[in-house]
């Protein structure tokens, strides 16, 4: 499939421990796909391997049909952005400088910062609503603003696909929504393909076109939020009892999973 990122019988892990045990998936272009699953199920490993931060033991990662193992680092970086979990920047780094790092893959060894670079940085800062924080330092931002600044850096890269590992970690509910609504807007208005890992099932359900559930390194459920979020799946994946309710808010049907507990 063109314009998409796919993984084929992927096995990957750390040191000698295999975490992903043969996963084949295609993340479609222009959609928001969220990966859920318990700790150690291979969510982050999947994201890191797909974003070539980790070499797979076997299997392949294909970007627009080409194996990323055969592509050079900069070409990949122009198409694919990846934000690891809670990245760290120097506290005195100004926001616009962080965002400007996103232009790195578009530069040669000696290139100067061009007008195109400047436009990309301005666009990324505007798209993330950080205009008035442009000259603020990372240490002066709230957690949500900081996450938006990192997303702005990835956007300045002008990728078609953005991979995010738990972009809402350590954020309160307000900032969680702020970040996810930003991602939805970027997907809506700019056609950005988003693949992310989330822990919160209900946030995953309300912001994703598609949810993939992993357990012990294997895909166990894959489909729309309505299809994946059912009591059986949740019991199977997380080993908890839950009740699914559907609510209608502003004409939009929402699926909500209410966890009830571990014991029977």
């Amino acid at each position: 499939m063109t314009g998409c990122l796919s993984v084929d019988s992927l096995r990957a892990g750390y040191a000698k421990k295999e975490v992903l045990k043969g996963v084949s998936l295609c993340f479609e272009k222009g959609r928001i796909t969220t990966v859920i699953g318990p700790n150690g199920s291979g969510k982050s490993t999947l994201l890191k391997t797909a974003g070539r931060l980790l070499q797979p033991f076997s299997g392949s990662v294909l970007l627009e049909g080409k194996s990323i193992a055969e592509m050079d680092d900069k070409s990949i970086a122009k198409k694919l952005g990846i934000l690891p979990q809670s990245p760290i920047a120097p506290m005195d780094l100004p926001v616009h400088c962080l965002v400007a790092f996103g232009r790195t893959p578009h530069h040669g060894f000696m290139n100067r910062f061009s007008n195109e670079d400047r436009d990309a940085v301005d666009w990324a800062i505007n798209a993330t609503g950080l205009e008035d924080k442009r000259f603020k330092r990372i240490g002066q931002l709230s957690g949500g603003e900081r996450q938006r600044a990192w997303i702005a850096m990835s956007l300045a890269q002008k990728p078609e696909i953005l991979l995010l590992d738990e972009p809402t970690t350590y954020l309160d509910i307000h900032h969680q929504f702020e970040v996810l609504e930003l991602l939805r807007r970027l997907n809506d208005q700019h056609g950005l393909t988003v693949v992310m890992v989330l822990h919160d099932l209900n946030l995953a359900a309300s912001f994703s076109h598609r949810i993939i559930a992993l357990k012990e390194g294997m895909t166990v459920a894959d489909g729309t939020p309505e299809e994946v979020l059912c009591a059986d799946n949740i019991y199977n994946v997380f080993n908890i009892r839950s009740k699914i309710i559907r609510i209608n808010e502003d004409g939009i049907e929402k699926t909500v999973a209410v966890p009830l507990g571990v014991r029977h």
């Binding site: 970086a77 990846i82 934000l83 790092f101 790195t104 893959p105």
Partner: peptide, 17 residues
């Protein structure tokens, strides 16, 4: 050095070897 300061994963994501 500035790019490396953002962490290995970010640096690699930006296409740095």
């Amino acid at each position: 050095l500035n790019i490396l300061a953002l962490g290995d994963d970010i640096a690699r994501g930006l296409g740095l070897q």
